[in-house]
Structures are given as structure tokens and as C-alpha cells.
Simulated assay, not measured.
Amino acid sequence: MTTAEWWTELKSITLHVEGESPRLWPESASDDHRRARIDLRRAEEALREQIEAVAAQRRGLPPGGELGPYTFREGPADLAEDGPERPVTLAELFGDHDQLVIYHLMFHPEDTAACAACSMFVDGLNGVERHLTRRTAFAVMAPAPLSAVRGWARTRGWSRVRLVSSAGTSFLDDLGVAGSRGALFPAFSVHVRDGDAVRHVVTEPADFPDGTGRGMDLMSPVWNVFDLLPRGRGDGDPDNTYPLGPPVR
């Protein structure tokens, strides 16, 4: 239970009656539905415990490898500005934090658009950037030229996330999120500042070692909301042609 001041001021909370909890069905629900929903809730509770256990195991990893003094390129915080470009080191990406999360955007230097699925992830990350950066530094990185990365970000409305080009560096290869022929792997990577050194903590790719997917799904609200639907996720993939104007009601 949070102790934040706002928690004690909202009517939605101050009118709460001790012991009351939301119902899982309307009064019209059948007995079969109610029994099945209770079973489902138990399964959801077990899943929560498994997620917590995996998170604890992740936090318990031994110290990772030390990373070199890479220098990337970034532009102004104002996405509308074209320049100037400036160098930024891996250590400088931490800012005032001692933790850093990087989203590795699949945007090859020879492509004219980023991966649609990656773009969907960054759409969401851009929206929650102000929450993420309360606890960690955060950046979106791609090996495409910085001008291309920023141009793509403008088409998506990524006005909040820090955008960095790793072009001309071996960072992606050294980290293992680039293939032997230059293919790119979508992934989150986490790093910590250890004195004057930067250490890798964990890399979370989209695919598991056996080639199956859903390795990063917990970081996307889209897939998790789709999993609530009676028809599930469906067969469609994210698409870069979604309209970016006002939502259609």
C-alpha cells in the first residue's frame, strides 16, 4: 500500500470500505463462468508469483562484464531541431543515475524506416519516459545515422525519449545484439555504473535461444492488453502505416 500524499486525498480511495474488493463478474454471470473465472484468477496469481521469482533471479545475477569507452552521437533534446550533433559516451548516458536501460531499435543504416514492432515498443516507452527516468537513465539506440533516427522519431512523435546513434562503433557487435552479417536483434540492455567503469547487467532480446518469441512482451502494454481479449492477439503484426493523427472514435 502506497504512502504517497495523493493516496490519502482522492475520494476514489478515501471512500473505500475495508474488506471490499472488485467483483470479477456482473450479477448476470452463470455459475460455470464464476467457477472458471476463479480458476483463472488462481492461475493469474501463480503467474504473478513466477514473474516475481524471475525478477528476483535477474536481480541476483553476478556482476556483468565491463564495457569499453564507446562514443555515440546525439542531437538536441528538442526533436524539432536538426542539430547540432554532439558526441556522448556510454558513461555520459547515465546522467545523474547509476542505472541505464537502452532499447535497441532495429534501424539498419541502409534502411529508410525502423522495424514496425520496435517502433510500437518505442511508442509506448516514449509515453512513459517521465516515469522511467525517475529511477533509471533511458535511451533508444540504433546504428542508423542520427539524422535518420531523428527523422523517423519525428514521424512517430517520439518527443521525450533520448535518441542515440551507435553508427561507427562496435557497441552492438560487442554486446551481441548485431549478427555476423549486420542483422539487428531487438532487445533491451541494462547497465550499471561501477565507480569509473560501466558494467553490463542483462540483455533481454525479443526471441529466446530456441528461436521462439515473446521474450520482451512484458515490456509492451499492447500484447498484454490483447491477451485479455476473447480473440487474443490475432495473426496480425505491428505496422508502420498506422495513422498518427487524432484517434478515431
Rank of each mutant, 00 (worst) to 15 (best):
T89R: 03
A117G: 05
A56E: 12
D227R: 14
A56C: 02
E129D: 09
P22L: 11
V164C: 04
G232K: 01
G124M: 02
V128H: 06
R86Q: 15
M141L: 14
A206P: 00
V202L: 15
D237T: 05
L93T: 07
V198P: 02
D207C: 07
G168S: 04
H191L: 15
V201H: 15
N126H: 03
F226T: 06
H131G: 09
W7I: 10
T89V: 11
E129R: 05
L218N: 12
R150C: 01
V101C: 04
S147V: 03
V192F: 14
P62E: 04
A91I: 13
M106V: 12
E27M: 04
R130V: 03
T14R: 14
L67F: 08
M216R: 10
Y103T: 13
A137G: 15
G60T: 03
L67E: 12
E74D: 13
V122F: 09
E18I: 11
P209Y: 00
D235Y: 00
Y242D: 08
R156V: 01
D194F: 03
L175V: 12
E129Q: 11
G60W: 07
L125S: 00
W25L: 08
V190Y: 12
G157Q: 01
Q99L: 12
P62K: 02
M1C: 02
P109T: 03
I13E: 13
F94D: 04
V164I: 12
G60H: 08
E74R: 15
D32Y: 03
S170E: 12
G213C: 00
P145V: 04
S12C: 07
G211W: 06
G245P: 11
D196I: 00
R73C: 06
G179A: 05
A187D: 01
R154F: 08
L61N: 06
E81K: 14
E66D: 13
I102N: 00
E45K: 03
H200L: 14
L90F: 12
T89Y: 00
Q99M: 05
D78E: 07
I102T: 11
S30C: 08
E49P: 00
A53D: 13
D98Q: 10
G157F: 02
